[in-house]
């Protein structure tokens, strides 16, 4: 056997070894991703292993729902049994509609909330021209000052949904501009709320809303 053929054989062997290592690395990473990381981090469970190992509950616990900096000061004021609406939940107060726009400078924040009775509902949708951090939360009536319960806390440019007030009090959003540009946040909603309240650096400003 010549030196050249030994060399070529050695190279072929080395190539096979490297290809095997790369493929093996990708395979192991893929399996770990599907079996553990996706269920635990995002609650996505393609193989069912997340449920089996209890990893999906980790994702739910990690999801930003529990109160942030402002919350968890003092105990909840009343027992907070969840509102379980049926297919139809009759409402007694007049239906209202609201559409508001806020201009936010760089890193500026604003808060806008609706006064709602326990069990009252609304559907909402908001969009922003830039990325914002938002916290959809409520302050139950009679709660200690600064107490808040978060319903959804995240970052993004839009969100929408339907909401049933778990307590009587004020419920709404805090938006904070995360960019260095001026942005606008536009909120549209329809629901069984009494009025809107705007909280900004300039203080509190009530929004009287006409009946639909």
């Amino acid at each position: 056997m010549t030196d050249e053929t030994t060399g070529r054989l050695a190279l072929a062997e080395q190539r096979a070894r490297i290809a095997l290592a790369a493929a093996g690395a990708m395979l192991v990473a893929g399996v770990l991703l599907m079996a553990a990381v996706l269920p635990a981090e995002y609650g996505v469970d393609p193989l069912g292993t997340g449920k089996l190992l209890g990893l999906t509950s980790l994702a739910q616990a990690n999801a930003p729902t529990g109160g942030g900096g402002t919350a968890a000061e003092g105990p909840p004021p009343e027992s907070l049994e969840p509102v379980r609406p049926g297919a139809n939940t009759a409402q007694t107060i007049p239906l209202k509609q609201d559409s508001v726009t806020f201009k936010l400078g760089p890193f500026e924040g604003i808060e806008y909330k609706y006064r709602m009775e326990k069990g009252a509902s609304m559907v909402y949708s908001w969009t922003s021209t830039g990325k914002v951090r938002f916290d959809f939360h409520g302050e139950p009536q009679g709660a200690p000052k600064g107490y808040a319960e978060s319903y959804e806390m995240s970052e993004g440019q839009k969100a929408s949904g339907s909401f049933f007030a778990p307590t009587s009090g004020i419920h709404g959003w805090f938006w904070e501009n995360l960019s260095t540009d001026d942005i606008t946040v536009t909120l549209t909603s329809t629901g069984f709320y009494a009025s809107g309240i705007e909280f900004s650096a300039d203080g509190q400003k009530p929004h009287e809303l006409p009946n639909r």
């Binding site: 290592a21 093996g24 690395a25 990473a29 893929g30 991703l33 996505v44």
Partner: peptide, 22 residues
């Protein structure tokens, strides 16, 4: 060393998959 760097690649692939699915 070969095995360790293969593990390094595994970790890298895992990070790529984790972030791309995110």
């Amino acid at each position: 060393a070969f095995m360790t760097n293969t593990l390094l690649m595994t970790g890298g692939f895992l990070l790529v998959g984790y972030q791309l699915s995110g």
